[in-house]
Amino acid sequence: MTIQFKKGVLELCVLSMLREDDQYGYDVASKLAQSIEVADGSIYLVLRRLKQDEYVSSYLEESSSGPPRKYYVITRKGEQFLDELRNEWNSLVANVNTLIDNSVSA
């Protein structure tokens, strides 16, 4: 449950970040790791799975220093999936909050 849950949340976060702008894999990993307690390394797996499911695509761009950078772009399919995830997330949060509030006030 927790692994699946975390995986879903990470996908939601990554897709949300990518909807705003194309991002370099490293940026996604480091930004996410800052806000969620997760090993940087596991984000690359999330990106890879999203790519396999065609929710994102990637392209390489030369960088002034070091090897070419892999940028990720959200696809149309990914945007639809993000909407689904977001709805699920919102209803989950709402339900959990109601539950917590009720049990606190009870």
């Binding site: 894999g25 990993a29 390394g41 070091g66 090897p67 950078r69 892999k70």
Partner: peptide, 9 residues
Amino acid sequence: SDYEAHFAV
């Protein structure tokens, strides 16, 4: 290559 790139940065 993803991890090597991460190391590089």
